[in-house]
Nucleic acid binder design. Sequence first.
DNA 1: GGAATATATGTCAATGCGTTCATATTTCTT
DNA 2: AAGAAATATGAACGCATTGACATATATTCC
Lengths: 112, 112
Amino acid sequence: MENALLLDKRTQNLVENCILSDEILSELTFFFTIFSDKTRLKMLSALAISRMCVSDLAGVLSLNQTTVSHQLRLLKNLGAVDYERNGKVITYFLKDELIGDVLLKGMEFLGT
Amino acid sequence: MENALLLDKRTQNLVENCILSDEILSELTFFFTIFSDKTRLKMLSALAISRMCVSDLAGVLSLNQTTVSHQLRLLKNLGAVDYERNGKVITYFLKDELIGDVLLKGMEFLGT
DNA sequence: GGAATATATGTCAATGCGTTCATATTTCTT
DNA sequence: AAGAAATATGAACGCATTGACATATATTCC
């Protein structure tokens, strides 16, 4: 029911040594959480085209302002976006081009 | 409270036209779901090193057989892995090298 | 200073996801 | 054919996540 069977010792050791630490696994899942929700993907793909304030983001995407704010905070905490304040208006933008890269990888996969 | 304000018409149209369709958004979130869970990441990173049967996967990673089976089914449905039967033993392997690419992008982000 | 605008936050209901237990299915062995 | 081994499946419980409403905070304008 739970015997390790076919793996030779070498490979087994290799795998056991290369298994990512629990902490890195956590950080990775946090990172990929960025992309695992429709609303967030929508927002990210919009921000990939142009930096935008919260209202515009909500308006263009037909989303609730509250929803957008919540998700922006999440994305901020995850390091996906950053913002810049100008008076009452706060403009958000993609922080790292890696974000765009990953989105493209996703699109690439769909084309497969 | 919800006026689009700062976006010029051109950009607004651009964004509205380039917004990914609901279906593509769904497919994308499905794709990224692959990477948004610790257990799955663990399994994928193990399979990135060597193809493996279910028992070995569970054994090496100290995971419940049932859990592994459930997640493998998910990964199979998402197109991340495929399998090969040999008698009672079923060997799973990464289906697409894109999976590895994306994992690397994640690691790259952590290094940032 | 007061009203209005832009954004953020707290809370909560609803939904979705992951794990586990029990059990089913498939294949091999004798 | 029976039992054992490997894997899959179904149901249920617990937990996290999402989005909506109400409200708070910050900033500008008059």
